[in-house]
Structure formats: structure tokens, C-alpha cells
Simulated scan of single mutants.
Amino acid sequence: AKTGAKVGLIDADIYGPSIPIMFGLEGERPKASEVNGKTRIEPIEKYGIKLLSIGFFTDPNQPVPWRGPMVSTAVKQLFNDAEWGELDYLVVDLPPGTGDIHITLTQTYPIAGAVIVTTPQNVALADAKKGIGMFMMETINVPLLGIIENMAYFTPAELPENKYYIFGQGGGQKLANQLNIPFLGEIPLVKSISDSGDAGAPVILQEDNPMSAAFTDLAERVAQQVAIRNAKSTDRVGVR
């Protein structure tokens, strides 16, 4: 969005939505409008991004104990009942796992690709492998755009050049190499990232923060992978 792209973001983590907090939109409610005789949800726009989350419609202090069919319906409504307009990218933030939300999404909509986010330790990598395996299943077949390693190392504010690999080193890179998937980069364990999310002001907007450049670089790499996938898809259509 910082480069002028039209971006939408769906928070599909029905059980634990985080977008309202991370964008400083707690208590906000999307408006409704009439389009061609139908009531449509207008995504909330902030920082140049159109946003929808189940967190805009539920009590943040109450759990969402919904069964699979209700969850699937809610996810579809965030797509189908919203007036997204023209977008270059529609990003979907999925919860961990391989459950109803993932299956509903992949079997209902054409997906350009999936980005896997993991931490370096073996326990997290084991779960990441399951997620990758799901996207690679013949019945799902979603392209893998790459792997991002979160909390790759700890860097104290007073020693910004130091790196402490408290969760292990290079797990995401090794997994990417093992499965022949692009490795998109690392996100360190830095307090300013957490503080920015809690304050509803994403760190990428803080030009004087070195983490802003790191997140910008990751976004550019993801966009590059999307462009590569789209080009390959166009080539295949042309051959036919």
C-alpha cells in the first residue's frame, strides 16, 4: 500500500482476530451500503488498506465458540458480502493449523499463493510442514510463495548489531531448502514490533525504525513471487 498498490486485508482468524488491535480500530464497526439492491459491508480503511475482521462484529471480551459450518459461513461473508472494489492484492491472515477455515478458503476462491510463517524451533517447523503439506495436496493445490521466519533472533535495543538465536538458528531457511520453496526473509524478536502492534501503529510506518525497511523488503519479495506465479499462469493459458 505504501507504494501505491490497492490492498485489502481479511482477518480470517475467526477465533482470535487481531486486526482491530493492530490497526487501532477497537470498537469500530463497518458501515453498510446498498449496491444494486443488496446490502453490502464497507471495509474500514486505514493506512491505505481496506480491512475486514470478525473482530469488528463481535465483543472483544467474549469467545467465539462456533462450529465449522458457522465459521465457514462467516469467512465467506467477509469475501462475498463486502464491497471491496478494485484491488491489486487481497491478503488473508489465516489462523495456525489446517482446519475448516483453510479448507473453505482454498476450495471456494482462486488463491494466488500462500506464505508460510514459522519460528525457528523444531516444534514450530513440524507444524509449518503440515501447513505446507495441506497446500500441496492435490485436492487443494495452492502455490507456495515462500517461507518467513518470525522471531528469528533477539536484538536488544542498546546493542542493535548483536543477534541472539534464542529459539535456534536458520530453521526457516533449512525448511525452505528442504522443500525447494523460496525463503523470503527473517523477522527478529524486537520490542518495537510488539509495541507498535499493541499501539495500533504498524512498525512499517515508522520510517526511522530499521524494522520498517525489513518489513518493506518482505512485502516486496512476496509481491515479486505473486508476479512470478501470475506470469507462469498466463504462460500456461497462452499455451492452451
Results as ranks from 00 to 15, higher is better:
Thr104Glu: 10
Thr118Gln: 11
Ala152His: 10
Phe135Val: 15
Leu205Lys: 02
Ile19Lys: 09
Lys50Leu: 04
Ile41Asn: 15
Leu51Val: 03
Val237Pro: 06
Ala176Ser: 05
Val35Met: 11
Pro188Cys: 07
Asn150Ser: 05
Val117Phe: 00
Ala12Asn: 07
Ile14Phe: 02
Gln206Trp: 00
Gly131Asp: 09
Gln225Val: 11
Leu184Tyr: 07
Asn36His: 14
Glu158Phe: 06
Glu161Asp: 03
Glu34Leu: 15
Asp59Lys: 08
Asp208Glu: 13
Met151Ser: 02
Asn122Arg: 09
Lys2His: 15
Val239Pro: 00
Thr118Val: 00
Leu9Asp: 06
Ser194Met: 11
Ser33Asn: 12
Ile187Gly: 03
Thr73Phe: 14
Gln206Val: 01
Ile166Glu: 05
Ile181Phe: 00
Arg229Tyr: 08
Phe56Met: 07
Thr234Glu: 15
Ser72Asn: 13
Ala32Arg: 14
Ile49Glu: 13
Met134Glu: 06
Ala231Cys: 00
Ile41Glu: 14
Ala114Pro: 09
Pro69Asn: 10
Glu158Met: 11
Glu138Ile: 00
Thr216Ala: 06
Thr3Trp: 11
Leu179Phe: 04
Ala5Thr: 05
Ile14Trp: 02
Tyr109Val: 15
Gln178Pro: 01
Tyr153Thr: 08
Ile228Thr: 11
Ala223Tyr: 14
Asn61Arg: 14
Asn177Lys: 07
Pro96Gln: 02
Met22Asp: 07
Pro160Ile: 13
Gln62Pro: 09
Gly85Ile: 01
Met137Tyr: 08
Val190Tyr: 15
Asn61Gly: 15
Ile101Asn: 11
Val71Ser: 12
Pro17Ser: 03
Ile140Phe: 10
Ile193His: 05
Thr104Tyr: 08
Glu86Tyr: 06
Ile148Thr: 02
Gln169Asp: 08
Gly146Val: 15
Asn209Gly: 01
Ile101Gly: 11
Leu25Phe: 10
Ile41Asp: 13
Lys129Ser: 11
His102Trp: 10
Lys50Met: 04
Leu90Pro: 15
Trp84Ile: 00
Ile111Glu: 14
Pro43Cys: 02
Asp59Phe: 04
Leu189Pro: 06
Gly185Leu: 01
Thr108Val: 08
Pro210Arg: 06
Asp88Asn: 11
Val237Leu: 15
Leu9Ser: 09
Arg29Pro: 00
Gly197Trp: 05
Asp195Glu: 14
Gly113Tyr: 04
Ile21Arg: 15
Glu26Ala: 09
Glu86Cys: 09
Gly133Glu: 10
Arg229Ser: 02
Thr108Ala: 11
Ala1Lys: 07
Gly48Met: 12
Ile19Ser: 09
Val237Tyr: 12
Arg29Phe: 00
Asp127Thr: 05
Gly131Ala: 09
Ser196Met: 03
Ile187Leu: 04
His102Asp: 12
Ala12Gly: 06
Met137Gln: 15
Asp195Tyr: 07
Asp208Asn: 09
Ser192Met: 07
Pro210Asp: 03
Asn80Trp: 08
Met22Tyr: 07
Asn230Arg: 13
Pro156Gln: 13
Pro182Leu: 04
Asp11Phe: 03
Gly185His: 06
Gln178Asp: 09
Gln169Pro: 03
Asp13Glu: 04
Glu158Leu: 12
Ile181Ala: 01
Gly37Gln: 07
Ile228Arg: 12
Ile187Phe: 02
Gln169Ser: 09
Leu189Trp: 13
Ile10Asp: 13
Ser212Gln: 04
Gln62Asp: 13
Pro60Lys: 05
His102Leu: 12
Pro160Ala: 14
Ala74Gly: 11
Leu145His: 11
